[in-house]
Write a protein that binds this DNA or RNA. Structure first.
Lengths: 348, 348
DNA sequence: TTTAGCACTCAATATGTTCGAGTGCTAATA
DNA sequence: TATTAGCACTCGAACATATTGAGTGCTAAA
């Protein structure tokens, strides 16, 4: 389909455009990349590439700009090269729970680190899939009318809720209840729930009303796909020419601000494990046409963990992928060294 | 110092400038505010007001713009009017802990609500003052080598940390330890700490090393002034003309993004209880010269709770103060109705 | 003390000109 | 047949130059 040379020209254009951010002309390619060929030759190739939908001109007499299709080709080439190297791969998810501030802390750190290494915006998320399992539960009395419901999920995610329960269940009753639930740790929540309901009906009939509240909370914690999401520093965006226009900035920002929208996006693209890149309009969220998303996903035991970077379509994919790989490898070190030695800050 | 009429002109200028955001000329004031007087008269008054430092001209042949001094006068007038009304005032802090998601949830909601009502950026924070007291503590085993340290402070703030403890303290020992600490609930942490250390030395000598970790965590939770901070939606900023310039936007944004900086700011200005307004350069944080901060602060039992709104110097102070008052009153209703009936969204 | 009138200032807007990077096409060349 | 040099052409960016209009300060009259 594409001749050897066309491919060469195309990748050069993409590379050059990513570096400089300006339309690239035939002369530039002739001088910097295919030094043997003249500008006119390149020009002909470019015209063909435009016909094939890989390049476009913002206006006559301007240089060429890569289309999403061209980025796709470029990124796939990068990914393929990466696949040949030895990937660390595998079981990084488990390490997260060893972080001193728990999974949340680890994610927060990872997202921040990703922002810094990539110079774009890092993200980190866990979503607990439908089949989330309880590890442990506990009730802690706060004062006469409140107690705290503490839930630890398999995978190390911790939730807590304060529940207002005006009646006076004794501490022992609560402990009993907790013990009862904990013996069933590892079961599906639906099973636990059923057993629990029976137990309450039998032994705690008069407190049923209060217990229902707690059950509802548990339901809301355990039910459905819930995503805990962290976004690293956004301040890099200000230095990116593509976002100097407040309109573009706004589009990206408002997506990053609404966790729900972002979670939906990650949920959609993180389904298959491993590293993937979604370029520009390939992703149909409105306002994200000019952005790309690099996403690494890993599912284990009912949770899916995702690390990602979002930035302009014209992002330095190689750097971003390297940053992700690095964070994936270093994830165990997160609790020790606060930040890396600070490479990868060379751009602009 | 200021004649009646000068005051009238000045307040008119401020009012007009807040509404329209453009330099206001003598003709406008003559036509819209002091209808009896001609533009020339107003012009003379304005010249005097400029000499006195209340107004300034961006350039010759432009209208006048209020200085910080003028805003001060204007805001003080608003605050004084407010003081005459019956303030609800008082003990709103207590209500926060009744929120179903605890203090954190209540703060998150409040900050968001403030953003929506004010059309600027809402903030909500609790800082636990030096004399924070323990309400309750608990240890929950997560797996063989980890347990969760759960801390509830007087005031309802909940912290939890996962601690890696490779040795095998039995569940009973941990419960003993927790019970020991809980008997001292309400004491100063320094006292508890000392008693605790003795207890560990006597009874748990061989686990001392592991216990030290837990103690350190407790120290880090309880020591010093720590601020938990929430920021409401920032998307209103995009519609404010003052922030259309990406530079100005960036200045405010980077402060809002670094929690530390923001916490420092709130700490500095929230010291005295009640409602205060900090206008433009009155606050010396770099980058915030063009912004104002409306802050309501309330201290009780070792915690200080603050609600605030940050926006451009040229903000609608009346609306913001009303929004704050409303949230202060409604704070008890937060757990019931998801959002207000939606007034106050009329601007632009 | 107030106001009408007038000359003056200056940002914003519109209009015109130049400049240069880049293209497409054609004809000469290897 | 593939490549290249040459040339006319296009069009945005950058700069210079009017034009407009809102607003001022000052002065002299009411």
């Amino acid at each position: 389909m594409l001749t050897e040379r066309q491919l060469e020209v195309l990748l050069s254009v993409v590379h050059e455009f990513i570096e400089r951010g300006e339309e690239v002309g035939s002369r530039t390619i002739s001088k910097r990349y295919l030094k043997g060929r003249s500008a006119a030759t390149i020009r002909n190739e470019m015209a063909d590439l435009e016909d094939m939908g890989y390049l476009m001109q913002p206006h006559t007499s301007a240089g060429r700009v890569p289309t999403t299709r061209a980025y796709r080709l470029f990124v796939d080439a990068v990914l393929q090269r990466r696949a040949h190297e030895d990937r660390a791969g595998g079981e990084w998810t488990g390490r997260l729970r060893e972080h001193r501030d728990g999974v949340r802390g680890a994610l927060a750190r990872a997202s921040e680190l990703l922002s810094q290494l990539s110079n774009y915006v890092g993200m980190a998320a866990v979503t607990q899939l439908k089949q989330a399992r309880l590890n442990k539960i506990d009730f802690v009395r706060v004062d006469t009318s409140h107690f705290l419901l503490l839930v630890i999920l398999d995978g190390g995610v911790v939730h807590h809720r304060v529940i207002n329960m005006p009646c006076d269940l004794s501490q022992e009753t609560l402990e009993d209840l907790a013990r009862k639930i904990n013996t069933m740790s590892g079961y599906e929540w639906s099973e636990v729930r059923e057993a629990l309901q029976n137990y309450i009906m039998r032994g705690l009939g008069k407190y049923a009303d209060s217990c229902r509240k707690a059950l509802e909370e548990l339901d809301s914690i355990l039910a459905g796909e819930q995503t805990t999401l962290f976004t690293g520093s956004l301040s890099n965006l200000f230095d990116i020419p593509d976002f100097q226009d407040i309109g573009r900035f706004r589009a990206l920002f408002s997506i990053l601000e609404q966790e729900g929208e972002l979670a939906r996006l990650l949920g959609q693209y993180g389904k298959k494990d491993g590293l993937g890149v979604i370029i520009g309009e390939e992703n149909q969220a409105p306002g994200l046409e000019g952005c790309s998303l690099v996403l690494s996903s890993s599912s284990t035991e009912g949770t899916r963990t995702m690390l990602g970077v979002i930035g302009p379509k014209r992002m330095n994919y190689e750097r971003v992928i390297a940053a992700l790989d690095r964070v994936l490898c270093d994830i165990e070190g997160l609790s020790e060294n606060p930040d890396g030695e600070g490479d990868g800050h060379d751009q602009r």
